[in-house]
Computed example of a mutant assay.
Amino acid sequence: MSFFKSLFAKKQALPTRSLNHPGELQVGDIFSFGDSFALPKAMRKQQLEVSEINTVEFKHEHYAQVVGRGISPQPVYISFPKNPQKFVKYSLLLTRQDVGNLFDLEAFSDIFEAPGNACLTPITFEHPYAEMVAAQYLQQDFMTTGYFHREDYRDGTPPQFNEESHGRQFEFYSLAGDQEQRSIDLFIFENGDTDVYLSFLRPANEITELWIKGE
Rank of each mutant, 00 (worst) to 15 (best):
Q160E: 14
P84I: 08
G100V: 04
S6I: 12
P159M: 08
Y147G: 01
V27G: 05
E49I: 12
D185W: 10
V76Q: 03
F161R: 13
E24K: 02
V56S: 03
A64V: 06
K59G: 05
A114G: 09
E151G: 05
V56N: 02
R96H: 15
I184C: 09
L210T: 02
P128I: 05
A13C: 09
T208K: 03
G70K: 00
E209T: 05
N101Q: 15
V99Q: 15
F189E: 11
L19Y: 01
D193N: 14
K11D: 11
S2R: 15
S18M: 10
D185R: 14
L93A: 07
A134R: 00
V88E: 06
S109C: 04
L175Y: 06
I78M: 07
Q181T: 15
D141H: 12
K86M: 12
L92G: 02
V76K: 01
D185C: 14
E151V: 06
E151R: 12
G68D: 02
V99S: 13
G214I: 04
A107Y: 07
G116Q: 03
P159F: 06
D29I: 01
F31R: 00
G156Y: 02
G214H: 00
D104F: 05
K10L: 10
S36W: 00
F108Y: 11
I111F: 04
R154E: 06
R17E: 03
H127G: 09
Q140I: 13
Y129W: 07
G167D: 10
V133Y: 04
K82P: 01
L93G: 03
Y153S: 09
K86G: 12
R202V: 14
T145V: 13
S174P: 01
A130Y: 08
I184G: 07
Y153F: 10
S18T: 10
T194E: 11
H60W: 11
E24H: 05
Q65V: 10
P22L: 08
F161K: 14
L92W: 01
K89C: 13
N54W: 08
P81R: 12
Y147D: 03
S79T: 10
F37W: 10
Y90T: 13
D110F: 08
G23L: 12
F108R: 09
T55D: 04
T124M: 09
Q136M: 13
H21W: 10
E49D: 05
L186P: 01
Q85S: 14
M43A: 06
V88A: 09
